[in-house]
Write a protein that binds this DNA or RNA. Structure first.
Lengths: 214, 214
DNA sequence: GTCTATATTTGGATAGAC
DNA sequence: GTCTATCCAAATATAGAC
């Protein structure tokens, strides 16, 4: 009897813990969503805990039940952004043709950056004063870079400088788009041409996956 | 007699006005120098009027004798930076060979950006909340872009997209250098190669100024 | 778990004495 | 022309009531 009672109690407690834990995670997610919205409106540096709390129907101090500091919020946002980048850009590429594969990846990356400039700023530039992402949050970003390197190598682009040239080209196109023609297509139109230019430089003279196959 | 007296007085007044005006300009220049130093240390957004005043041996309110607001200081810095860019990057190019000319300009631009990242951030990105440069401060930046276009056209690169691709390539290289290897040479080493790649794409098939001459 | 109240800091900007 | 004193606003963060 006592055993049963204790066991029942334990079960209930355990379920309650689960439920509360889930609720807590849901609230954290809601806070992060609101943070992204505010950051898009007022810029990365313009994020304030007052505004953030107000947007989720709280007062500022209550946020500290979910994140120990403002930097922790930035860190969680960085982690989210890095995982999104890995998921969206680093998704499987169903082609072995080098040109098609690079075009696909280039457009994914370009779209990822320009569709959310503040996210790209948080991930790829150092703009917030004292903020350094934690290793956990940073990990997916490293993974994406490794994945990109692998993509190039798999297409026969084994030149060690090829990846650096590739990232420079892509970041240049997307940054110019964001800074000088936000919402437009002035540099978006040049992505295909840039990939062709790149392939002519680092790729096998006659494009495609021929080099690796024959 | 009275006429002479008045004339003498006018001369003295005029000279004093000149001297004071020059002194005032010198102080403004000193303030801007200090502002650049602080911005290099603490970042663009980290500039505070208290710190700035302290560095030139003043208290914060005294700065308002020289600049009507903090934004006015940013604007003056923007103007300085833009004029420096025009002077350093847009200096005469003593060659008609397309490859050599583009290499020269590319290295000038790369060096300009990486030698003072905060300046480049102020000029080429929109990172300070409410700040928009005044038309006067902005003018040299426009002039530099026009100059760059002219350089390309003079070398036979009349493709209207050529300039956009050029700025994307250069900004990408220098941004990657700043963000991922500050002070290093990881992307600096790739400038020559990038220019070659670019010329192969937009230039006349066989480089040089041949196309324009024969 | 959320709140009020508050500590603390820091910023830009102004008034008025000297 | 520079100062002291101050205003005002906004920010992060903490203490403690409920």
């Amino acid at each position: 009897m006592l055993g049963n009672l204790n066991s029942d109690r334990s079960n209930v407690d355990s379920l309650n813990r689960d439920r509360r834990s889930r609720r807590r995670e849901a609230t954290k997610a809601e806070i992060l969503d609101a943070a992204w919205a505010l950051v898009r409106e007022h810029g990365l540096a313009g994020l304030s805990l007052r505004d953030l709390a107000a947007r989720v129907g709280m007062r500022a101090p209550s946020l500290y039940q979910y994140f120990p500091s403002k930097h922790a919020i930035y860190d969680a946002m960085f982690g989210q952004g890095a995982r999104q980048a890995l998921a969206e850009v680093g998704a499987p590429v169903g082609t072995t043709d080098a040109r098609e594969a690079l075009l696909l990846v280039a457009h994914r990356m370009f779209d990822f950056v320009t569709s959310n400039p503040e996210r790209a700023l948080l991930l790829f530039q150092r703009t917030i004063p004292g903020f350094e992402p934690s290793p956990e949050s940073y990990a997916p970003a490293v993974e994406l870079l490794d994945w990109s390197r692998l993509q190039l190598v798999e297409r026969g682009l084994t030149d060690p400088d090829a990846l650096d040239l590739w990232t420079a080209l892509l970041s240049g196109l997307s940054n110019q788009q964001m800074a000088n023609d936000p919402g437009g297509t002035r540099w978006a139109r040049l992505v295909d041409r840039a990939v062709g230019m790149y392939l002519a430089e680092v790729g096998p003279p006659s494009a495609g996956s021929r080099k690796g196959k024959r």
